[in-house]
Write a protein that binds this DNA or RNA. Structure first.
Lengths: 205, 205
DNA sequence: TAGATTGTTAATCGATTAACAATC
DNA sequence: TAGATTGTTAATCGATTAACAATC
């Protein structure tokens, strides 16, 4: 189910395929084809078939893919057929938006703890969460066996927060701070810096 | 200054280099080397030199790169040595966080108009912005000659918003809605779907 | 059966890296 | 000069695509 040698770039596309399948399912579609997904996603149909072939044979010649079945397979491959507890560090505007973003829960990612180091915020409520002291990250993360964290603190404290999280056992970090983090190779990091995305477009204008 | 044939993937890395240079400048450093940037960014030094060589010769053998100079060159290449007006569509939690995110202004991206279609929000204040009716997107975008937009609406209205924006002359879209947009080839789109980023990491856990 | 679409092979295309002459 | 680092070439590596036999 999880061959060790699947390229990173292939894994990166699977969530996009999954998202498209969810969309088709909502439209109560039952069958799709690599060409249809290709048209929708702006990816070649050959690439979609090749990507999927790393994990098995999910389609039927002459017919295509049963959407429900392929979706379940992708969810298993990506390990999102289970629920994940998530720690959120940073209770500013950004942390607030993240904590209220319904798509996390809807996709099995449950924020279970929100941390901040500002004494004025610690103990206060943010939506349904009581904000915890960042000092308690190690104990809370360890006790709850949390493996996934989101960093939503300013750039100048992000590396320090990352160090604490890694030390506490976090293995995947979604980093909203505009800085490249230094972490051990076993820890995965994904970056969301909207300024970087805008700068990738202005070049072409 | 802008050779037509520079690979997309190279352009994608330039903002990361720029971010690292800004960071070094704040530490009052004056000179850096491809190897130092490589260590900081987890990219090979050869790749950094090769990427830069698409645009000119910015370093000195034996010495490295003058940080201020290289930074200015990258800003020119990416066209972020100028100010950009940005339209924001969607005044929910996410739109709120985006409108208040200081890094946009700090990097020359100025949100100048915020739109929503909810009658309860239209006319209300969100921070320093008065929320405008989405119906007015065409006129406002055209009158202000806005070229860059951010979509922060739910998935089910994102495509429609994108169509309106493109029609109004928008050429670059930063899309926070969890859906692949269908736009003409001349329009650039960048995607930020945090769920996708989380799903790219759980595979490895 | 005829038509359609998969899974897979082999070829092509493109990106990364190693290495080093040039040169500061 | 000796040491260091760039810019660039050529080789390597890896990803994408075209094409088609297999098969539903």
């Amino acid at each position: 189910m999880a061959p060790a040698d699947v390229p990173d770039i292939v894994i990166g596309r699977l969530p996009i395929y999954l998202r498209a399948l969810n969309f088709l399912l909502e439209e109560e579609r039952e069958i799709t084809a690599s060409q249809e997904l290709a048209d929708k996603l702006g990816i070649s149909s050959a690439q979609i078939r090749k990507d999927l072939s790393h994990f098995g044979e999910f389609g039927k010649q002459g017919t295509g893919y049963e959407i429900k079945y392929l979706r379940e397979q992708l969810r298993k491959i990506l390990k999102v057929d289970q629920e994940w507890d998530v720690a959120l560090v940073g209770a500013g505007d950004l942390g607030h938006a993240i904590a209220h973003y319904g798509n996390f829960d809807r996709n099995g990612f449950h924020i279970v703890a929100v941390f901040d180091r500002n004494p004025r915020k610690i103990g206060a409520k943010m939506g349904r969460f009581q904000i915890l002291d960042s000092e308690s990250i190690p104990t809370v993360v360890q006790d709850m066996h949390i493996k996934v964290a989101i960093i939503a603190v300013p750039a100048d404290s992000a590396q320090q927060v990352a160090d604490t999280l890694v030390e506490a056992g976090i293995q995947a970090i979604l980093n909203y701070a505009p800085i490249t983090l230094n972490v051990p190779p076993k820890v995965r990091v994904q970056y969301i810096d909207p300024v970087v995305y805008l700068q990738r477009m202005t070049y072409y204008l």
